[in-house]
Design a protein around this nucleic acid. Sequence first.
DNA 1: GAGCACTGC
Length: 700
Amino acid sequence: MSKGKKFRKIGKTSFQPPKNVVFSDKRSSADGSSDHEDGLTKSASKHDLAREAASLLKVRATLPVYKHKDSIMSHINKNQVTILIGETGSGKSTQIPQFLMENFPEKTDKRIAVTQPRRVAAINLASRVAQEYGCRLGERVGYSVRFDNKSNARTKLKYLTDGMLLREIMLDKNLSDYSCVIIDEAHERTILTDLILGFLKELINSSRQDLKVVVMSATLQAEKFSEFFGRAPILFVEGRKFPVQRSYLKAQCDDVVDAIIRCCVQLNQSEQMGDILCFMPGQEEIDKAVAILSKVGEHLGASVPRLVALPLYAALPPAEQAKVFAPVKGFKRKVVFSTNLAETSVTISGVKFVVDSGLRKVKVWRHQLGLATLLTVPISKASASQRTGRAGRESAGKCFRLYREQDYQKLPNQTEPEIARSEVTSPILMLKKVGVKDIVNWSWLENPGKQAILMALQELFQLGALDDSGKITNKGQKMALLPLAPHLSSVLLKAHEDGCLLPVIDIVSCLSVENLLINPSPEQRDEVNEKRFSIATRGSKYGDLVMLKEFYDAYMSLKSAAEKDDWCKELCVSKRGFKNVVKIRAQLLSYMERLFKEKLSDNEDESDSFDIKAIVKCFLAGFAKNTAIGMPDRSFRTSTTGETISVHPSSMLFMDRSCPAILYTEYVFTTKGYARNVSRLELSWLQEVAGISTVKVSAR
DNA sequence: GAGCACTGC
């Protein structure tokens, strides 16, 4: 069958989108906080809501998807599964769900789910659609993301993060609440969307033949989704974006930072006003580029705009991130040096020029070694096109690709799906939770491979989540319901068993937050380290897990928000991170109470009295394979493969030379093998929990 | 002896 045949192309539209409709993945700030305005005052009357909706209707009517409503809906109505390819600005994420709502009127008490890979997107889309629909957010139209649920029993249209829908699947594998599930941004191929698609396929072929599924994606990959769902029809709706002129390098460059700086300086002289967005692989290159460009900028003539260099990456404190969104005033040009963060998660207005290094950093899981490697690799064509598109959001733009056209041609079409290069213990525990027996032959959109699956099954067996026949255990059932990686879940369950849940739950909560401890700048480093050591008196000997507990206690002992803020600043700790820790802790505690149907006291006097050995042994239960033994030459060798591993410089134990052995929660290979979140281990502790069973489990 | 890309429950 020819590929063209299956493509039903719907409509063509011209440029000039009204600005306020291009908001599919827009976010106003980078702090990702869940606080937001829904744009409606609480006292807004029904009349006001209706009037606002009516005025928005004019804008909606100009959207490509809206114009082709009838033909799109007739396809969706006729087929159980539809693949909808909608380019940026087509309006698919806001309109299609509303069309479906009109279709499934009051008679059914079921809902429509729309999934998004990111929280902010789910929240923003829901509030926009509530406005268009003319209801208060959380009534007919709502959303549900972790820690923030604005939906009720009457909610018909619910935007959720895909993690949230997966949780719902864990609790009700038939999704009996829903009549229709829309998977948005499917092309991003996150592990969670891939899993949902697999579950949906199984469902519609068994107990839910009435369930309607729409897979929405921004770019191609349509064939893949269509084949997966038994040749579901593919609809294509053009979007509205401005043209972006692309140019390539004539000769290969060997220094990305140098090439990017040259490009920015040249562009600054020859091009009209407009901000620059540079895509770089990581923090190291970005910090370097910012420093160089700031210096170079001092020597620019008065006839060209001043260059304002700004970094952007996830580990950057929110206040620093916020700077990239502020427009620059006067005869100035903003130059943002960003990681992949600006490719999908964040939109910066004012960008007219994109400079693309063609590189990104990816974490690749080596299941045979049980370690993650962080690699700098060339991007895919799809990713290059996405980066380029960032120059055409508001007007025509230009993209400078710092590689040759022939090198572009050699790039893979699509980015490798995340699941193909990740640890699959958590996904497989989810499959086991919903009763999948044959994991290898499950309906994987991308099969992670037999070896990866076997390693994960063995891992889950060792954690006690599966029995020796591969069946999920009672413990495994509980682990699957905890919002944690299986290893951390098993730490928590062990802590409950050993009666030291409270201190361990504090530490696990801290470990659940990325970038909780910010890497201080070289100038601040000694001072900050000294302060951290003075607070973590026991952590300085016993390591990072104990340190996290001491930090948590210190943070909680502060009364006012101002004190907390100062404390965070002094110790270079993320204050948003710690707020999250507190939320996660409360959630974990309530989930544990529900799992064990008992009140787990939260008011006992636990401060200053935790038992370090007991705590570390709980972590040993979850991370038995993550131990290394000290060698006479003061290096460490992993107890599994005997490879050399170093304590990461961010660890409390980096300078320590006295540990007989170490336990760590993460093993990452960058320039060399590094252990992160390191704890001191006495050899006797290790022996007490040794004797790891090595019984093989089958893949069935 | 000196450093991790990005999400989500």
